[in-house]
Write a protein that binds this DNA or RNA. Structure first.
Length: 478
DNA sequence: CGCATTTGACCGGCGC
DNA sequence: GCGCCGGTCAAATGCG
């Protein structure tokens, strides 16, 4: 019995899944309502026409009219069914198109990074490659400076890529394009790239690799771990004036804790994203001690699920900002903040928002200050617009940064590669030198990070999304 | 009754 | 080792 049912079901499936022309032939029989596959529309019309011609008395006229009406109803039903089918097909095509787009951009990113690497190879071919072997021990001997050193070494990251195979480790990533987050892609990278460690590159115990995801180096797994850890730790804070207890960012949050933090009488609330089970994103909400009308919201982590449009801007901003911040050649947060080259705060062009790279936090933090009005710009404000900012990231389609499913490690990697291109970054950056001044280098990078038009675009998108949820008085609508 | 929030306890990191 | 602090857990409580 079940077998028979199954067979029938399959037949029906085949019937509806048939090609369009045969589907169009499906008709509902006038009297029984039975499906009559194979009956052509024009044939039905022919029947109809014939009946009309034969009508000579009123009863047959009535019946023919009924038939006509029934046929019209049936035609309508057919059209509706066809519409639904086309809609379904349209949805499938949309999904396919999205996947193709993702793959295309992934490939584009890969190509750009390969070209970048090739350029670096050519530029450095004349220079001696004599520092790679010593660096790990050197790192080890710099007591207490491991983390800082990780950032310092970023400047030399591209050099390490010289002797490395190019695409093997990245291939799975590229073909996949299914990763939603940096973390996910890093985890995949970790799985894919932990073999064949060259003998010439020892890994002393306690040695910590560069933050930069070189993606195809022999130290990929360690670096991936480091980067993952940093990305998990990286934060984006948003300061906004709001009377509401929470700014609306389009995501669903569940409160899991509240604390009175030191130095602020206002309690800090802890939320986790509940839009998907296991989503690692957390956020903290706290009022500013100095100005209770200012709400400070900190985001941490990357969503592991697609986001509604309302949440996309913010989420992409947090992850983009975090990855951008982390991918920059920062010697350390302190290195940036202590540098007299790099501005501590910058105003986004075209907006009144303040972007701060935080040094005090134990992890990299980008703060978007939306509380300043145009007439109250703070000190140290700059407009670091750089027309020469690496085009391989600014050339990305704007929606890419906001795409929740885009594998952001590619942005990370490509962006990193761009750090080594001295044609593109004006000023202090010259990564092709063997000796890189880490302070000047990273200082310029930090400045350039914030000057990145795409980064600012993402920030502006986030700001817009927030402002869109606030009324003229700065209060949340929700 | 189920779900969300509250709140005290607990844990790990860090500085002294 | 100890205390402080930030972050998280989980039982209790509240609410629709």
């Amino acid at each position: 019995m079940k077998l028979v049912d199954h067979k029938r079901a399959v037949n029906e499936m085949d019937f509806f899944a048939g090609d369009r022309s045969s589907r169009q032939h499906v008709k509902v029989d006038d009297d029984g309502g039975h499906h009559r596959p194979g009956l052509l529309q024009d044939q039905a019309d022919d029947v109809n026409t014939g009946l009309n011609l034969l009508t000579t008395n009123t009863s047959s006229e009535k019946s023919s009219q009924n038939l006509k009406e029934k046929q019209r109803v049936n035609q309508l039903a057919d059209v509706r069914a066809e519409l639904e089918r086309i809609n379904a097909e349209n949805q499938r095509l949309k999904l396919t198109l999205n996947q193709v787009n993702n793959n295309y951009y992934a490939l584009q990113m890969h190509l750009v990074s390969l070209m970048q690497r090739q350029r670096n190879l050519v530029a450095e071919s004349s220079e001696a490659n004599n520092t790679e072997m010593d660096r790990p021990m050197e790192d080890k001997t710099h007591g207490g400076g491991i983390v800082a050193r990780q950032f310092m070494d970023l400047g030399e990251a591209t050099k390490a890529e010289i002797s490395e195979s190019s695409s093997e480790d990245r291939a799975p990533e590229l073909s996949g394009s299914t990763g939603n987050t940096i973390v996910e892609s890093m985890e995949r990278s970790e799985k894919n790239s932990n073999t064949n460690i060259p003998e010439g590159l020892p890994h002393p115990p306690g040695w910590l690799p560069n933050k930069a995801p070189k993606l195809n180096t022999s130290m990929d797994n360690e670096q991936a771990q480091q980067t993952m850890a940093m990305i998990r730790k990286a934060r984006v804070s948003v300061r906004a004036r709001s009377e509401a207890s929470m700014i609306s960012d389009g995501c669903q949050w569940r409160k899991y804790g509240q604390k009175i933090a030191k130095g602020n009488p206002c309690p800090r609330a802890y939320y986790r994203c509940t839009m998907a089970t296991g989503c690692p994103v957390r956020k903290q909400v706290q009022r500013c001690a100095e100005d209770r009308t200012i709400l400070i919201t900190s985001y941490e982590g990357n969503h592991n699920h697609p986001l509604p449009p309302a949440a996309m801007a913010m989420a992409s901003t947090t992850s983009a900002a975090a990855s951008t911040l982390l991918s920059g050649s920062m010697p350390s947060a302190d290195g940036i903040m202590n540098s007299n080259i790099v501005p501590k705060e910058m105003i986004l062009p075209g907006s009144t928002s303040l972007v701060t790279l935080s040094a005090s936090a134990p992890f990299p933090t980008v703060t978007l200050d939306l509380t300043h009005n145009p007439n109250q710009r703070p000190l140290n404000q700059l407009h670091p617009i750089s027309p020469h900012w690496p085009h391989n990231i600014s050339g990305l389609p704007p929606h890419l940064l906001g795409h929740p499913n885009y594998n952001q490690s590619k942005l990370l990697g490509t962006f990193l590669s761009s750090q080594g291109n001295n044609e593109l970054i004006p000023g202090h950056l010259d990564q092709n030198r063997m000796q890189v001044d880490p302070v000047a280098d990273t200082a310029a990078t930090a400045a350039a990070i914030t000057a990145d038009p795409n980064f600012t675009a993402a920030l502006v998108a986030a700001i817009t999304s927030i402002i869109g949820h606030r009324d003229n008085n700065g209060n949340n609508k929700t």
